[in-house]
Amino acid sequence: MIPEFEKFKRFKAKNLPKEELLAPGHRACQGCGEVLALRMAMKALGKNVIVCMATGCMEIITTPYPQTAWKVPWIHIAFENPASVASGIESAMKVLRRKGKISKKHVDILAVGGDGATSDIGLGWISGAFERGHDFTYICLDNEAYMNTGVQRSSCTPYGAMTTTSPPGKKSFGQVTWKKNVPGIAVAHNIPYVATASPAYFLDLMNKVKKAALVKGPAYIHIYSPCPTGWGSAPERSIEFAKLVVETRVFPLYEVIEGRYIMSRKITKPKPVQEYLKGQRRFRHLDEEHIAYIQQRVNADYEKLVRLSEMT
């Protein structure tokens, strides 16, 4: 068991931190699930943190110079490398503390990337940082495509989804591959803490972020983040989709603590995937056959996850 979790106090609706470390006035679209998730994560972490961010929507919308939405130290270097930048910061602080050049006080280090930054271009950098065991948290804000560049598919784009580079047509039905299991890849690095979260379950999300920060060594959190602009969904329905994705078992919530899978929310009576898919333009073209295939794979993946939680 992880000793740091013993002193961990869960957030409750009553005791949520009031301070906004990611200030309002940023330029995200209405109903943006990414910025919402990020705001909650920042509330959970508090002031004592350094944020390293990948190029992407969140970087662009929070820092059009001379403005910044960040009330904590924040750095952006490039698209694929926030995990390496975090490695550098963590190493620097370790040695500077040892040499008595900075305060001994612990500072949390957070790296943030979108699904493109995480599952595609930055995967090797993240793998390196996990393998080296730096004490930091990596959050993937997964809106299931490269949104900042105009909705191109990533390897986290769900099967069948329409993007500008996976368009449905006479010879295509949209994204042809199944979503890459990035949390599984993180687990394979034997890091102490991995979790999935959705902003609809905000207390769960915040508690997971806090635990990730408390843990010594690398932690990974994969956060499902609705993007009305990229998905063709109503901005006011973002939270609803963030809930439906869990209730349909499409995006199960779980933790993996030192290799042990723990279901955060068991979905005993799942809603059909169709309920989640409808209302999003990116899935509108899918026929029954494809939807049936999605249902079948969602069932299989969920069962596998339950088996893992029973086995470990």
């Binding site: 350094i50 390293c52 750095i75 270097i77 490039a78 694929e80 490398n81 390496s84 930048v85 975090a86 490695s87 550098g88 910061i89 963590e90 190493s91 620097a92 602080m93 370790k94 040695v95 500077l96 040892r98 040499k99 050049k101 900075i102 090797g124 950098w125 793998s127 390196g128 393998e131 080296r132």
Partner: peptide, 28 residues
């Protein structure tokens, strides 16, 4: 020498790590 020797996974990672380290105030 009292230093952190970071065994990065590539040169791109090395220079990215250098940026983080220097930004945190370490001689890099």
């Amino acid at each position: 020498l009292d230093a952190e020797f970071v065994l990065v996974e590539s040169e791109h990672g090395a220079m990215s790590c250098c940026c983080g380290s220097s930004a945190a105030g370490a001689r890099t």
